[in-house]
Amino acid sequence: MASKKSDITLYFLGASRAIRIAWLLEELSLPYELVSSPRAPNGLAPPEFKAEIPTELGKSPAIKDGNIVIQESAAIAEYICETYDTSGRFLPKDPAARAKVREWMSAAEGTFMIHGLAILYARWRLPEPAKEYLPEMEKGLSTNVHNDFDWLESELEGKEYLVGHDVTAADVLMGFGIEFIFARKLGTEGGDWPNVKKWLSRIQQREAYKRAVKKSGYSL
């Protein structure tokens, strides 16, 4: 539970990383205003929605808390934890546990998503004359995805959550990317990661996560 009052507005683009922030806010029972939009037919954020977001890039997720505006999932999550989670439940006070949580927060984008998106962007952007090379490209790029998921699988052995015995910001930041990579089949063919699948199902069954999904209309 949070110990301070918030004045948070969350800018939420459909089917996006913003579910991380909505979930964290729900876990902390923090009230927030949701400014949301579905994606345009081209899959991007509608221009009118981007214009509402008070950042230079107009990207989601972003939050406004009083006079403070923050973008980027990990930075937002860390700000929320530092400001409102004074018990250290989601960002532990113990230096070793805190470092492990931050490791996963960084890996969510810097390792897992970047390797999955490399495959997605190849599908989207490869010129038509080069499309015949796409299967071989995906096969090569999938090695990184398999290595990442093997690491996650081993870290989850005998554990319900990534760090400690309860959910932390590590799980919150990692969840979206793993769901996204599985849903889009980004290099996961031929892999079997039972611990990862159980963990993903476990976090998605949390009441706070389900509230965030219901409130935001999130779906991949």
Rank of each mutant, 00 (worst) to 15 (best):
K64M: 12
K64C: 09
D65T: 04
N67P: 04
I68W: 14
V69P: 09
I70R: 11
E72C: 05
E72V: 05
A75Q: 09
A75N: 09
I76P: 01
I76Y: 01
E78P: 04
C81K: 00
C81Q: 01
E82L: 08
Y84D: 10
T86N: 10
S87I: 14
G88V: 05
G88I: 04
G88A: 14
P95G: 08
P95N: 10
A97S: 13
A99S: 09
K100V: 07
V101H: 00
E103P: 09
M105D: 01
S106N: 13
A108R: 02
E109N: 15
E109L: 11
E109Q: 14
F112S: 02
I114A: 00
G116V: 02
L117V: 07
A118R: 04
I119E: 02
I119Y: 04
I119T: 01
A122W: 06
R123S: 08
W124N: 10
L126N: 07
P127R: 03
P127V: 05
P127G: 06
E132D: 11
E136S: 14
K139N: 15
G140A: 06
L141A: 06
L141F: 05
L141T: 05
S142L: 06
S142H: 05
H146C: 15
H146R: 10
F149P: 03
D150R: 06
S154F: 08
L156Q: 05
E157F: 11
Y161H: 13
V163A: 00
G164T: 02
A169N: 01
D171C: 14
V172Y: 05
I181V: 08
I181T: 00
F182L: 14
F182K: 09
R184M: 14
R184A: 13
K185R: 14
K185T: 13
G187S: 08
T188Q: 08
G191I: 05
G191M: 05
D192R: 05
W193N: 01
P194A: 01
